[in-house]
Design a protein around this nucleic acid. Structure first.
Lengths: 170, 170
DNA sequence: GAGATATGTCAGCCATGTTGACGTATCTTG
DNA sequence: CAAGATACGTCAACATGGCTGACATATCTC
């Protein structure tokens, strides 16, 4: 059993070992790709005294203005207490505003202020720089492959939520 | 400027907006794909009283037996104090052993114990399940595209280190 | 032998997640 | 319309896993 964690790299390795190596390659690239991409914005965030948790909230609010608190909670998959702290800080810094929902007055709709939008787009610019460089190097075909594999990693139950980010709110 | 963070979805959108949407799609899929994949092993880790930090160390030690502490530090990109805590816990639980380097006696070479190898392969099985399902759904061409884009996200300075994981130690 | 390097460790701090409990406003339903 | 469900907020305590700074030891290199 212990051998499974150490595949042979010999030329005649069995299909099982090749498969293992392909999986490990994916795990590692996903780890390094994701962490190095997020590292790209840490310096900028640090200047503002914010952390990654703040960026995730800013990002999704930018992506879908008038997002409700509940929707954001589902996207981030954290507790409302954790999110509450983050939203409070964003609000205190005039980066985010909330307004009462018009259809359901219990809901709070989230939006970036102008200041928040400026910050988010500065952060996004860093992500764009890295990701578009990777897209260009890899080519359009690779990019669609990249998307397909990642879509397959999102559990069925979350997939609609993720796809809906690309739509305008109704 | 604020508009940049909210692309139009209209059919006649300019190339700039299409480009933005492609970047955001990648950011989101990378976020959801990575976090959902790592979620897959949280339950198993919890049973052992370990966290993700422990898994990352276990993973890389499994991947490259006789890895030195310094190499692991560079892979994880954390401080030696943080790693020290993790390695101590893994050692206390008989999951990892160290031996003095033969070429350079200052180094400590890290290896999994049999018990550690069993645990790592159980965790890896979860990752394999998710990732291979995504590979199969997407198809081999998509998988190579997935790898190419992610390789482009790893900074030049880290790339050799990441590629070297696939080799045996000399 | 002097200085650089690899590793370990103490101590304290911070960011960001968790659980549990409880309050208020608003919507929905019998 | 009253009762219960839902959306949101908040207090308090705690866990994980990062961080900095300071300092010690063994070993290697020149």
């Amino acid at each position: 059993m212990a051998d499974i964690s150490r595949p042979s790299a010999s030329p005649g390795a069995s299909p099982l070992f090749l498969r293992e190596d392909e999986i490990r390659r994916g795990v590692e690239l996903l780890y390094f790709g994701y962490t190095r991409l997020t590292n790209a914005i840490d310096q900028e965030l640090g200047k503002q005294g914010l952390g990654r948790a703040h960026h995730r909230a800013l990002y999704f609010i930018a992506r879908q203005p008038d997002l409700t608190v509940g929707e954001l909670l589902r996207l981030l998959a954290i507790t409302k207490q954790s999110l509450g702290r983050v939203l409070k800080e964003l609000h205190d810094r005039d980066l985010v505003v909330t307004k009462t929902g018009s259809l359901d007055r219990r809901q709070k709709l989230l939006r970036l202020t102008d200041k928040g939008a400026v910050l988010e787009s500065e952060l996004f610019a860093q992500l764009r720089e890295r990701l578009s460089a990777a897209y260009v190097t890899a080519g359009q075909e690779s990019v669609t492959g990249f998307w397909h594999v990642l879509e397959g990693l999102v559990p069925e139950s979350d997939r609609q939520m993720v796809f809906d980010l690309r739509k305008e709110k109704s």
